[in-house]
Design a binder for these strands. Structure first.
Lengths: 335, 335
DNA sequence: GTGAAAGCGCTAACAC
DNA sequence: GTGTTAGCGCTTTCAC
């Protein structure tokens, strides 16, 4: 009965003693069993199982430099865009034998860095989802540990980008078919990569379909912002609106109802990200962002980077219009 | 220029060399600065900052046994019940200086155990949210590392329980005031602790208010299950339904609409967990579960357990009825 | 107040 | 095939 600090949890030495072999043999029985006599392996594993021995990752990491962990940092776990992504990252990482740290930066650049610093010595690499911090910080981090960015286009950093253009252009075409000629874009945080992409895609699609795009700026992408922005949207002369995200779209729906304007009869609305599913009324037509794919691919890229592969991959995910019930034929009555 | 494995990331030795002190001094400058000459501390910290040195938790853990990590295991990250909880856990843990591993068990007992085993040597303790695994597994885990359970009532395991009874009894009283006399409960997974609690609370409230409760069993708590269960609900003679969760309630809403039954004029519906907010139509009356509080308190309990405090705390959170638009005066017309 | 040395649990040459 | 040894980055007696 040795007295040890690591109370209760058996170590490699305990197994070695039990199996009457050296510690290296135990180590190899787990990490490289092919080097060892099968009967020895079996014996070791039996003893280990009996003792409830599980290899200590932290200790292993100290000698190998491999922790078997990755970190995922997101700006806001509660934003419904992220849970599917988190889940996909966790599941994919698990299949590759990695555990995942989760960090919520609370939309805050400094916290993002702080979390990354805290974790840097326990992880093989990082997945930064929609990072809020400056490019130079990401590049610096990448010099210490491989980084994969989601929705941030930085040369030299493997990245997966959700490209709104296909979905948005389908959305515009869809509205054009219904006879709409002027569409309002209710923007999100204008500084964000996502908003820029969406705005750009929309303008391009508008040009192609000969549709006028009116930009309506809203500060924060919230339900309330959507509600409050309705008068401006109506003033713009648009007969349809595409919102930066589903929450704003939902707010628009509510604000329009307050103004007595029925959707889709007198006004059409399209959201983005498709995180509300069919739960709004009427069920919201939206551009789906496939955030789970983004997570899965991010892990693939990270695994590639860990194997020392191509350092500058740029994976672009297309989006897709999901038509539900908030879009319809343009109303020609004056509003 | 020493060649080292831990490429790029500075170690305590680098700082020691830079500051021309011993490694122990650097160590103490970070962990026990009061033992050290303030000017030395300052020097060391300056050098460390310049090098970008961050103490290596994994290495520290090897000698102290303290990793500065906890693990959070949930059955399904995408279930909107959990993101607020995850966020609260991460934020609280961070304030106590802990990083958090996230694991998604996919509603699967075996995966729950597998995740816990993988992590056991890297964490101080576990938060198990709505664990799906057997009680004996949880108890066994708790013998190796402190465990806090959420929504699982096991003696000897610190736990935080979301008690539906206040919210549910308010819900029943609310319906009773509107004249309802028979209420259907559309159940979730009958084996789950949550469903048992909710059913029980409902029956008790029914007794108190002289309301008949009809149990309608549904397998999985999904939107579709809610839709399909509508005929049975109507057959039961109930004029209102309380669903196991908001998704089923939302399904009921949709199914009722399909049957041409308007809500709340001819039928009232109440959900649980309040995860859909006001996004349904009509906006769903629901019993709010305050999952973020549960996460925060779970971390508090875990921190207590780590300090060796009271091993058998049982923290009960009350719930609250949020009245929106799906409840109203009972219709006396025959349906 | 600071340094030297041992050891946390494990892996990885290098022997045999 | 298996054991011996050194060392991963850090903390922690024990000296001085």
């Amino acid at each position: 009965m040795t007295l040890r600090k690591n109370d209760g949890v058996p170590t490699i030495s305990d197994v070695a003693a039990g199996a009457r072999v050296s510690r290296s043999t135990v180590s190899r029985a787990f990490s490289r069993p092919e080097l060892i006599n099968p009967s020895t392996v079996e014996l070791v594993k039996k003893i280990a199982a009996g003792l409830g021995y599980v290899p200590n990752h932290a200790a292993r990491a100290l000698s190998t430099g491999l922790h078997g962990n990755i970190a995922l940092i997101v700006p806001d776990i509660e934003n419904p865009f992220f849970p599917p992504l988190i889940r996909a990252v966790q599941t994919s990482a698990d299949m590759d034998g990695y555990s995942v740290f989760i960090g919520d930066s609370d939309e805050n650049s400094a916290r993002e860095i702080k979390l990354a610093d805290r974790l840097i010595n326990q992880v093989e690499g990082f997945v930064l989802a929609s990072p809020r911090t400056g490019q130079q910080n990401i590049v610096a981090l990448n010099q210490r540990r491989p980084v994969v960015a989601i929705n941030r286009d930085i040369r030299g950093i493997p990245r997966v980008l959700i490209d709104p253009s296909t979905g948005v252009s389908d959305a515009v075409a869809h509205l054009a078919e219904f006879g709409h000629r002027t569409i309002a874009y209710v923007s999100g945080p204008t500084a964000s990569w996502s908003d820029q992409q969406r705005r750009l895609a929309l303008c391009r699609a508008g040009l192609k379909c000969h549709i006028k795009i009116r930009l309506i700026a809203a500060e924060r992408p919230t339900f309330d912002a959507g509600v409050h922005t309705v008068p401006a949207v109506l003033r713009s002369g648009a007969t349809a609106a595409i919102a930066f995200d589903d929450f704003m779209a939902h707010g628009l729906l509510s604000g329009l109802a307050d103004h007595g304007i029925s959707v889709p009869e007198r006004f059409s609305v399209i959201g983005m990200d498709d995180v509300l599913g069919a739960s709004t009324f009427p069920a919201l037509t939206s551009v789906s962002a496939r955030c789970d794919d983004a997570g899965r691919i991010a892990v693939q890229l990270l695994m590639g980077a860990l194997r020392g592969e191509s350092a500058d991959t740029r994976s672009v995910l297309r989006t897709q219009l999901v038509v539900r019930a908030t879009t319809g034929t343009v109303s020609h009555r004056k509003m």
